[in-house]
Amino acid sequence: MGEKILTKKDLTRLFIRSNAVQSAFNFERQQALGFEWGMIPLINKLYKNPDDRIAAYKRHLGYFNSHPWTCGPIYGMVASMEERKAIGEDIPEENITAVKSALMGPLAGIGDSLFWGTLRPIAAGICASLALSGNGIAPLIFVLFVNAIHFGVQYWGVMAGYNFADQFMEKMQSFQIKAWMEAATILGLIVVGGLAATWLNVTTPLTYTTGEASVALQATLDNIFPKLLPLLCTLGVYGVLRKGKSTMWAMCAIIIIGFVLGFIGVL
């Protein structure tokens, strides 16, 4: 096995940059740019060959959406996989994408319920009542308390993710890694299917009349196949991309089609 390239310092830097995961947030690929920005110094250190670098930049510009407080393990695991890929181990880039895809949803779910759903309201509630009883430093206590947890969890996540992936790949033989990576791809697809059905919200306000009553088309669709429209949209885009159209082309098409359909009241 080749020499390790990444140092503790690189991982600390990765942790610092991982906090920018929500940067330039957009509806198309959510936190893709933020994730990319976190990976840039690492990619630059690991890959000296321009083609490898370009491939890595493109790899991490793919769709990503997780939770800003719990996405650390993904960064750590991806760092370890990229390191081994750079050393020359056989790690196809689909596997790296699969690990990201399989983990982003569940970790976001944990973050949403644990922090947004529980910790934040409790801390804010306590500090707000302190503030209402005249305590002027309550807001400061709130900020320090939640962020101590925030940065602590994220730091631990990046390090733990790296160590886990590193030891995993150290212990396993290549055929075992292959089987587990195939499993990660399957898990990725299952989770992405679930995410698409949860996070994509395309509905129609159209109504039609049967006899006397006017019926909402969306309600009928929901009875037969809920989330049919989001599915059709995703598969449509997927099909267009498979046919070799550029993503820029697809984006312009979506903007025009979406605007027109919204304008005339179909969506």
Binding site: E28, R29, G62, Y63, L195, N201, V202, C233, G258
Partner: peptide, 11 residues
């Protein structure tokens, strides 16, 4: 509401 379909399609 349509744009995320592009992200998922790419993924």
């Amino acid at each position: 509401s349509l744009l995320p379909a592009l992200g998922f399609g790419l993924l």
